[in-house]
């Protein structure tokens, strides 16, 4: 078996009494493009947070590039985190700085403090930043103030930051949530371009987009994996079950991991039709 880029072993995640993830196990191979789909609150964001190390699981282990990220400390942990780039739903840019500084933030993991501070006064590696922005089609915004850009442009800046960071793994949390349909295709195209030669994990609501741009789709519901299939094999029934609002907790908790298609009950389908 080849070494997985990302591996979760019976991971559970709890916030107080709320269970965000329950006994999730999965492995993602290097170079794979994976979409996480599922209703709001299914645990997609939690899963991504575990993968970039911003959260630790209550139980189980998370391995990034073969290392248990939550057991590392200090510089070794940071070195690993540098290999994971994240595109956030809210972009998380430093809004009152120029675009170039936000793009250069991708270098920060490699730069010493003095260089980072000097770059704020005298921007460093301008060409790398310009190239990254050019790939995303906003090269002319290099020196614009970030908070004067449109939402879509800001998202491209966030992508450019990840591009400059040059990680092995790219995570994207609902990148098309607040974008109109035409733009969402652009965005997904950019993301899969970004994910070329990289592992890509992206959480989405739109299954069509997932099927178009990803090799594999993982369906999450109430903290469990409902299905985990190559894009082409995901069926309409599975999707209906995934987004079925009426399915009770009890029924959901009876579902076990990847075997769920066998356990689908007719009643679920009927309810969804109502």
């Amino acid at each position: 078996m080849t070494r997985a880029a990302l591996r979760l072993e019976s991971v559970s995640c709890q916030f107080g009494s709320v269970v965000a993830l329950q006994a999730v196990s999965l492995a993602i191979a290097p170079g794979e493009k994976v979409a996480l789909v599922g209703p709001s609150g299914a645990g997609k964001s939690t899963l991504l947070s575990l993968l970039n190390g911003s959260m630790s699981p209550s139980q189980g282990s998370v391995q990034v590039l073969g290392k248990a990220i939550n057991q590392l400390q200090g510089s070794r942990r940071r070195k690993l985190q540098r290999q994971v780039g994240t595109v956030y739903q809210q972009h998380q840019l430093i809004e009152n700085l120029s675009v170039i500084h936000n793009v250069n933030a991708g270098h920060l993991g490699r730069w010493p403090l003095w260089k980072a501070l000097w770059s704020l006064v005298w921007p460093q590696q301008v060409n790398a930043a310009r190239q990254a922005l050019a790939q995303l089609g906003i090269a002319d915004k290099l020196y614009a103030r970030t908070d004067r850009l449109s939402g879509g442009q800001q998202q491209r800046v966030a992508l450019a930051r990840v591009l400059v960071q040059d990680p092995k793994i790219v995570l994207a949390d609902e990148p098309v949530a607040s974008v109109d349909p035409a733009r969402s295709h652009d965005m997904m195209a950019l993301l899969s371009h970004l994910g070329k030669n990289r592992t890509l994990v992206v959480s989405l609501h739109d299954v069509v987009l997932a099927q178009t741009y990803c090799d594999r789709i993982i369906g999450l519901r109430q903290g469990r994996i409902l299905f985990d299939l190559p894009s082409a094999q995901v069926s309409a029934e599975q999707l209906t079950a995934l987004y079925d609002l009426e399915a009770s907790d009890l029924e959901a908790s009876n579902l076990e991991g990847n075997d769920l298609e066998a356990d689908l009950k007719p009643s679920d389908l009927e309810n969804s039709a109502v």
């Binding site: 970039n52 190390g53 911003s54 942990r77 940071r78 070195k79 690993l80 985190q81 540098r82 290999q83 994971v84 780039g85 994240t86 956030y88 998380q92 933030a105 991708g106 920060l108 993991g109 403090l113 960071q165 990680p167």
Partner: peptide
């Protein structure tokens, strides 16, 4: 966001 991408 920066800290989680491995920045000191």
């Amino acid at each position: 966001a920066l800290v989680n991408s491995g920045v000191y």
